[in-house]
Amino acid sequence: MLELRLVQGSLLKKVLEAIRELVNDANFDCSATGFSLQAMDSSHVALVALLLRSEGFEHYRCDRNISMGMSLNNMAKMLRCAGNDDIITVKGDDGSDTVTFMFESPTQDKISDFEMKLMDIDSEHLGIPEAEYHAIVRMPSAEFARICKDLSSIGDTVVISVTKEGVKFSTKGDIGTANIVCRQNSSVDKPEEATTVEMNEPVSLTFALRYMNSFTKATPLSNQVTISLSNELPVVVEYKIAEMGYVRFYLAPKIEE
């Protein structure tokens, strides 16, 4: 028996919109810790890890660990039927091949339930080792989204370089080149507008912009994005979900031959 009641149902809607471009089908894992997912894109270049901690739900009942395979497109179709202010409850029974999403309007005058078929998904769970990152950049998520979108009209890849000066995003394509430098500005009044750069060692890595742009679908989840970089390791692009957890995207770099 599984019953998860999320008062801020819009969070689940935003989570689905954030990951469904990258991953088609995935197993949602439910345990005492929370509601989580780990999945790779079909080319095994990127990985998404989601955690919604049990404490973030108004009601969280999960009698035993359960894994539910879902088509993210179908799940998004159902969640789009929930209002942005609706309370969403996810219900499942042991051994059932369906999951139910219940939507309650804030005034309780409209209650809907949508039953979705589950699917069997073979997925490999990967161990993600703890890593010391050479550089950690925190910046407004909307700014990062803007940069990825702008650069993808010039080139296909982005070189992200971190130095004492700040973080530089560069691309080149048939029509020319582009460089965008963001400097630290932690003195701004509003913390959500701050850009901070923690650097232990200079880093410069190349990534496919197509994936970066896909990660920025998570922008509505958080005002800030954290980009953790180490030479020749996957970059981690993290969007925190207030008081609940996170969506983390891992992207393997492109290596010079």
């Binding site: 790779m40 080319s43 095994h44 270049v45 990127a46 990985l47 490999e124 769970h125 990967l126 161990g127 993600i128 080792p129 890849t157 190349t206 496919a208 390791l233 996957p234 891992y250 992207l251 393997a252 770099p253 492109k254 290596i255 010079e256 031959e257």
Partner: peptide, 14 residues
């Protein structure tokens, strides 16, 4: 040319 690495060359199956 840049070669795209796979995520599987960094993270092992758990």
């Amino acid at each position: 040319m840049n070669r795209q690495k796979s995520i599987l060359s960094f993270f092992q199956k758990a």
